[in-house]
């Protein structure tokens, strides 16, 4: 079941369109990657989900209900542009923000104590935020995002400002939150973390959603039947031994090992390739080149921009 449904939402500003009939569906208890280049419209979409601004058209459903003011209590939002009151004490501030998310004073104190203990930062309670390092502030910020135990968490570039150790700590926490039943929307440019964490993604470019689905499916779809062949003891022309419909796109030589990148026709498999080359070379390895999310991101965005540019030219 989808916890969040965005139904052809559009948002226009005076001179530009921020979102053009974007629809996404976020399944319950998944980690959903919201991807796209800078200025694509991700932040606008996130703000609409948080009811910071309203859509011009379309609707957003949280657990099949149209967004209403009370829904802010069910959402935790860690914005990309984030910060805390510098002159205010950490504990007092966390308490204030938790109460703004609808928690009672008593509950807020208890839950905050729990999180402060968990992150081993109890001693910071009375310190002013300006006395903390950037990484420490990020931890506090993370806590105030999750303390009211929202069903839906939205993290916009959550790992910026963290050192690798704390990035790992945070990843573990995110996975833990999901295990406990939360759904996480995760907006980032860091494709490695998308591959590592996300179950589903949506790719937004220039106000349009241009790709969505589960990460596995998308990767499968973007496979190009290309293989990397490692071999040695052959100095002839590899192309000549390949059957005509295998195309050789690249050859590298390193320490007597040759590596060839070969694209296979759609009806052929890796065994066909092996059968072709085995009589001529000593094979040391063969592996399929699976596109990374990074490649998919770049190629999809470029394809979309190219098509758009063509449209413009056609006009």
């Amino acid at each position: 079941m989808a916890i969040l449904t965005v139904n052809s939402v559009s948002k226009h500003f005076a001179t530009q369109t921020a979102l053009n009939k974007v629809s996404i569906e976020v399944p319950e208890q998944c980690i959903f990657g919201l991807l796209g280049p800078n200025g694509a419209g991700k932040t606008t979409l996130i703000r609409i989900i948080n009811q910071i601004t309203g859509p011009d058209e379309g609707e957003v459903l949280l657990e099949n209900q149209k967004l209403k003011p009370d829904h802010v209590y069910s959402i935790g939002y860690l914005p990309e542009e984030r910060g805390l009151y510098k002159k205010m004490a950490v504990g007092e501030q966390a308490l204030y923000l938790a109460q703004l998310k609808g928690m009672s004073h008593h509950d807020a104190v208890q839950k905050l104590k729990y999180w402060f203990r968990k992150f081993e930062i109890e001693s910071w309670w009375g310190k002013k935020v300006e006395e903390l390092s950037k990484g420490m502030q990020q931890k506090v910020q993370f806590i105030v995002t999750v303390v009211h135990e929202p069903k839906l968490l939205i993290f916009d570039e959550p790992f910026s400002g963290f050192d690798p150790i704390n990035v790992n700590l945070l990843k573990d926490e995110i996975l833990e939150l999901r295990r406990k039943g939360a759904t996480i929307i995760f907006s980032t440019h860091n494709m490695a973390s998308v591959e590592e964490l996300c179950d589903n993604i949506a790719l937004i470019n220039k106000a349009n959603k241009i790709l969505d689905g589960s990460v596995k499916e998308i990767k499968k779809l973007h496979r190009s039947n290309t293989y990397e062949l490692h071999y040695r003891d052959f100095d002839g022309d590899l192309q000549s031994v390949l059957n005509g419909h295998f195309s050789l796109s690249e050859i590298r030589h390193e320490d007597g090992i040759h590596t060839a990148v070969i694209k296979l026709p759609p009806d052929a498999g890796s065994n066909d390739l092996l059968a072709n080359v085995m009589p001529h070379v000593v094979i040391t390895g063969l592996n399929e080149i699976i596109p990374s999310m990074n490649d998919i991101f770049i190629s999809t965005v470029n394809a979309f921009n190219g098509a758009n540019a063509n449209d413009l030219l056609a006009d």
Binding site: N50, G83, L97
Partner: peptide
């Protein structure tokens, strides 16, 4: 201005109306 430059404002307006 302080809320804006310290970037806390977006956290707050996700809980309350501007």
């Amino acid at each position: 201005i302080e809320e804006k430059t310290s970037r806390i404002v977006e956290v707050i307006v996700s809980s309350v109306k501007p």
